[in-house]
């Protein structure tokens, strides 16, 4: 009985911790889709950059050995720098790759996104950047269990990870629904041309969306590498899978819907971990994509999306 409870809580904690990171990544997919109506396939590579920039920073700050004690603010500093750097990269990607295609068919932008994704993956592998080998992320948080629930250790990394994710999501929620800039974002998402007629600077709003989405992705990458300290090299299939699952979370929650992406991310995380723990570990990716198929069959607009009439 005790072992069963322990497994249950361990699964719950891991599912929530990873699910909240999926949610952070899903937000980037969904925000860009809401405004530009295209799926930014290069988004998962921003997650990778976030993790690796954090790694390089931690190394250069001298926390190279896994056991070197880092002060609490080191992690925060690294998080903020990684978010800023990735925000800047997101801005540059939008400016250089997507903006020239503003009036072009959506498919063109999409193919460009795949191109950007390949470019980032392969650039990241260059030996003077991150290299092609996996690395050990220095542990910036003491790896002590915070409390124990029925034998399941709630570690500081999980609490800080999920907590940071929730804080960022609350901040985003405030930004979008309670500020002028957020209103502009929502206006552009409803109708770009009308918004621009009302004096909204559409290009600035789009750039800002990319910056915010990329910064959140960087945070997710950093937190993910704090939890799974053996960080994979930039083009590893594991990163692609992380991005795909976050994308599924965005679709399940209703693509274009901010709250849907958050709930979708946590749902996907819990589904994956409970499926792995109680059904079979062999099919952990299958659960996620099976849910996607079910949602698309029965609620094509996503669980929280509103069905709209397509103008033909």
């Amino acid at each position: 009985m005790n072992a069963a409870l322990q497994t249950f809580f361990e699964t719950l904690i891991n599912g929530l911790a990873v699910g909240s990171l999926y949610a952070l990544v899903a937000l980037g997919y969904t925000m860009v889709y809401g405004i530009l109506k295209f799926i930014n396939f290069a988004h998962s590579d921003i997650v990778v950059l976030g993790a690796w920039i954090a790694f390089v920073l931690a190394r250069s700050l001298g926390y190279a050995t896994p056991d070197a004690a880092a002060p609490w603010y080191a992690g925060l500093l690294i998080l903020l720098v990684a978010m800023t750097a990735c925000g800047a990269i997101g801005y540059a990607v939008e400016r250089l790759a997507y903006k020239p295609l503003r009036g072009a068919p959506r498919l063109n932008v999409l193919i460009t996104a795949i191109g950007v994704s390949l470019f980032l993956q392969n650039t990241g592998q260059l030996s003077f950047l991150f290299g092609a080998s996996p690395q050990r992320m220095p542990s910036l948080l003491p790896d002590t269990p915070l409390l124990t629930v029925f034998g399941a250790r709630v570690s500081l990394v999980d609490v800080v990870g999920a907590g940071t994710a929730v804080l960022l999501m609350v901040g985003l929620e405030y930004l979008i629904f309670h500020t002028k800039l957020g209103r502009a974002m929502r206006a552009v998402s409803y109708n770009t041309s009308v918004a621009s007629l009302m004096g909204v600077n559409v290009n600035a709003v789009i750039s800002f969306t990319f910056v915010v989405g990329s910064a959140l992705a960087a945070a997710a990458g950093f937190l993910y590498s704090m939890k799974y300290v053996g960080i994979k090299q930039p083009a590893d299939a594991g990163w692609v899978m992380l991005g795909l699952k976050a994308f599924v979370a965005a679709v399940v929650g209703g693509i274009g819907n901010i709250r849907g992406a958050m709930i979708g991310g946590v749902m996907i995380g819990l589904l994956e971990f409970f499926g792995a723990a109680y059904v079979s570990t062999q099919y952990r990716d299958v659960y996620v994509f099976a849910l996607l198929i079910l949602v698309l069959l029965f609620r094509p607009a996503g669980l929280f999306g509103r069905a709209t009439v397509e103008k033909v």
Binding site: T11, Y228, G238, A276, A277
Partner: peptide
């Protein structure tokens, strides 16, 4: 599966 990051279910 190669590429997985989490092995907690198997290890439990």
């Amino acid at each position: 599966s190669g590429g997985d990051a989490d092995f907690s279910a198997q290890l439990a």
